[in-house]
Write a protein that binds this DNA or RNA. Sequence first.
DNA 1: TTGTAAGCGTTATCAG
DNA 2: CTGATAACGCTTACAA
Lengths: 349, 349
Amino acid sequence: MTAASRPTIADVARAAGVSKGLVSFALNGRPGVAADTRARILAAADDLGWTPSVRARSLSTGRSFACGLVIGRSPDVIAADPFFPSFIAGVEDEFSTTGQVLVLAVAAPGEEETEVYRTLAAGRRVDGVILSDLRAADDRIALVEELGLAGVTLGVPDIRSPFSSVSIDDGAGVRAAVDHLVSLGHTRLAHIAGPSWMLHAAHRRAAFDDAVATAGIDAIVVETDFSAAQGAAATEHLLDLDEAPTGIVYSNDQMAVAGLGVAQRRGIPVPAQLSLTGFDDTDIGRYLYPALTSVATQARLWGSRAARSLLDAVAGADPEEIALPSPTLIVRGSTGPAPHPPTRGSGRA
Amino acid sequence: MTAASRPTIADVARAAGVSKGLVSFALNGRPGVAADTRARILAAADDLGWTPSVRARSLSTGRSFACGLVIGRSPDVIAADPFFPSFIAGVEDEFSTTGQVLVLAVAAPGEEETEVYRTLAAGRRVDGVILSDLRAADDRIALVEELGLAGVTLGVPDIRSPFSSVSIDDGAGVRAAVDHLVSLGHTRLAHIAGPSWMLHAAHRRAAFDDAVATAGIDAIVVETDFSAAQGAAATEHLLDLDEAPTGIVYSNDQMAVAGLGVAQRRGIPVPAQLSLTGFDDTDIGRYLYPALTSVATQARLWGSRAARSLLDAVAGADPEEIALPSPTLIVRGSTGPAPHPPTRGSGRA
DNA sequence: TTGTAAGCGTTATCAG
DNA sequence: CTGATAACGCTTACAA
């Protein structure tokens, strides 16, 4: 006699004049139900406005119908990164069509992060997790496996992993940037890299090393933590060099923007005296002056492919290695022909 | 005989030599359990490594122990906004200590967004939701109420609302920016506003109108959608004016950065000929040249207060109106003394 | 103070 | 094919 609470399969069963079990079968589209009976049940369910209770389903199936994404970075660093919003949108593209839900957490790498995974697993709040920002010898892989969760890694781990991976060839983007600069006549390049313990930062750096070696030109690499602050500092350092580079390949847009600020502060014209390339193709980059040449990745696609792969894993599929289309270089105003070399031995010509 | 599956309260009960019911009482710290019995139960639970099953608890209590945040924007716009990562970190600060979990979704305002709320509610995936980016006559308020979810709004709605609100006085930030420019001698100011249907954009604009009126100076307002593209376009428009403003107050950092790009492209020195202020205090702003004067809000605090308020609401507390500390203006290089006015009637002096 | 038993809404088993 | 009936793990009256 209380106000109408949500209908359950028992109500549907009563309305359709069958048993609960049959309703469950019919609703889950399983064989073994007469066509007309099934139709009657579906009609009744629709009639009553029945909707499955994820909670009950969850308890009896042992699945959460939820997956987790634990972002292991500080909020400031996440804020400057255009990756996650697009990536998450992609994940949603996949999840929303399958009734899954995304549980998001942020935690600094280390104890705190480990604790988050443990908590998520202990309460069985999620069926699986997406491992982003893969690290060298990433201990999260063993942790997640031990916790009995499904997983998918963004990028191919450098250690054995029981999980599927979805990767993009960062290196292709960096190579494109280097080739672009070389084709513009640059012969002294630098790379401002992210932390080497982050796999994608390491890959970008390796690709840089490789590309400059192939081109047979001078190059120098400075490692940072990916922050604007260190990007600026590294740029200062490079510009202080006797033989300063004429082109700098940054491992992300954030540092490239900061580097552009440094150049401007010093009165160094970009790209006349110095060319810069970023990585991520942040929206804001195209509105700077000069607009930033950058490497565009497909974060949203990445998100949806990773989500699908994870759901497959939850469903028991074998791990797979998925390669995404290579990123592309978007050429804008921050790169240009190498400056005419100063007369050897003297200052400016 | 199967491999050890997780212990349940039944196991704990057996180990402690009591009944399931008592275990539940003891574990939930409820009165009516002898002290030593309680200790014995707790010890047994600890011993067995028992951990509550959120699923089972969820089914029997009717609560999800999860709350939702549906971001009603396109990924591109989210990406450029430093608000959400910090805000979410704040939410986590609160949630993680209470075993709650954050369910995140992104959806364009309109049908798609409504559907997300309905789905979340239908499956009872969340106990409540955080309503961000409040809109004029926001229909999400009635929707969420109708769906029977708890809620908390970021900002005070302009319509009746059954929910608690947590707000920050955006206006104070804008007033500080205007006052700053006025004190530098500026007499022709402009405001590049966000869409008027977004409450906080409207508030910022109203504060601008109010502040310039109080100062008794010329002012013009251009409305945009908060995007860098429109921020740049609006800036172009203002600079094309016969009596172009000498100071522009942007409603967010993203547009301010784009505006700076426009000024630089035109060769207009900042701040010598044009002063700019942003809003949000994006990290990257301090590394531009000149560094961006901007209004800093406390997104993380906002997140934790909103989370707590929402949990209170879920627990049945009466709605409350919480006011956060006012934002503060961070003065950097993009603002300076008003340029000496050009000789009347002639071009440059 | 403690034990018993009835749900919560599904899914899954297993006789009809 | 169909329909009871027992889990799933916890909370919560209600008894004892």
